[in-house]
């Protein structure tokens, strides 16, 4: 696919609607967009989300245990929202900010 931006750019872009998103929803969408359908691709995208949260650009607002195996059974699912710092970094990255 042409015109794709780096994965963390796109992740911040998806969060820049300032709404809360579950990590598995974002991961599934990213897997489709970047054609990374393997388990390795899935974990690698999820890890990028973790790094963004660790860097203070996303904040976890809600968590639940994945009982039904929508992402990985028994693991924690997180609902994230973009932080002010995340917005600043997103606009640094010249994302079309909504």
């Amino acid at each position: 696919m042409a015109g794709l931006r780096p994965i963390k750019f796109r992740l911040l872009e998806l969060f820049s609607d300032e709404k809360e998103h579950w990590n598995y929803e974002i991961v599934v969408q990213m897997q489709k967009e970047y054609n990374m359908n393997s388990n390795f691709g899935r974990d690698s995208i999820n890890f990028d989300i973790l790094e963004l949260a660790s860097g203070g650009m996303l904040r976890s607002v809600q968590s639940k245990v994945d009982e039904d195996g929508v992402y990985k059974k028994g693991f924690l699912l997180h609902k994230y929202i973009i932080t002010d710092f995340g917005k600043t970094r997103a606009s640094d990255a010249c994302l079309a900010y909504v």
């Binding site: 780096p6 963390k8 860097g55 970094r89």
Partner: peptide
């Protein structure tokens, strides 16, 4: 690294 993957 805020906005890039470390390996890359």
């Amino acid at each position: 690294l805020d906005i890039a993957e470390p390996d890359v």
